[in-house]
Design a binder for these strands. Sequence first.
DNA 1: TTTTGTGCAAAGAGTTTGCAACTAG
DNA 2: CTAGTTGCAAACTCTTTGCACAAAA
Lengths: 136, 136
Amino acid sequence: MSGANLKKVGLKVTLPRLKILEILERAGDDHHLTAEDVYKLLLEQDEEVGLATVYRVLTQFEQAGIVRRLNFENNISNFELDTGDNHDHLVCLKTSKVKEFVDPVIEERIQEIAKENGYDLSGHSLVIYGTLTNEA
Amino acid sequence: MSGANLKKVGLKVTLPRLKILEILERAGDDHHLTAEDVYKLLLEQDEEVGLATVYRVLTQFEQAGIVRRLNFENNISNFELDTGDNHDHLVCLKTSKVKEFVDPVIEERIQEIAKENGYDLSGHSLVIYGTLTNEA
DNA sequence: TTTTGTGCAAAGAGTTTGCAACTAG
DNA sequence: CTAGTTGCAAACTCTTTGCACAAAA
């Protein structure tokens, strides 16, 4: 993911956008960042980017399919790079650590359930909540 | 559900609480009301209840296990009577109509996934989004 | 009467927007 | 040059809180 990709979706290649992309990449799998998180990380590396810009950029990325917006229980948005695999999430209620998983069985049932009920499926959101017991 | 049940969970039987309970009951399966919805319904039947009270009461009901709080995509809370069956939701993106379902296969997979990943399962949230095609 | 609940207005959190200054193409 | 982008402050939406008054037990 880089400048070329930004251009491809019709977004000018600017410093804030590149930096935010970089932060999302660096965050990896079990960090699903809030806008605030991204903003703070930018400050830590002495980038002068406003919080409003972070929101705008994340929203644009979402619309461009670069980023997924996740809504966990707290009514606050978390963002992750959209890797294309349509994974779901396991959230630890103690540590807030997030793990990703894909389950073909569930995936299939979801499609069937949508069909059975006369819905034209467009997506789903599955979050499993629990507490991590013995850390691997 | 009535005054007796309120008392059982340690809540005084008051008019706002009874009226809100009544509204939730009347709403039925495919109406998952926001606090605002409940508030407006109260006004429509000429009940003088403040929005803050609606929020307070719904939160108390949630803690008492009378009500479930649902968070769909929009980061706004919807409330429904907690019937005990742990159902999930199908949401129509056009009409916002909500349908409930229970799927044993998915239920089982969720338990397995939690275990496989070393999580002590405490709950989950599954929402399927789609558009209702030919209304039944 | 004592405890608990209520209404109102104000505060709070997260997010969005208007606008003048700036910058990539 | 000029259309798109940014930072800031102000606005907005949903939700919670402080407090004086009111109602339940």
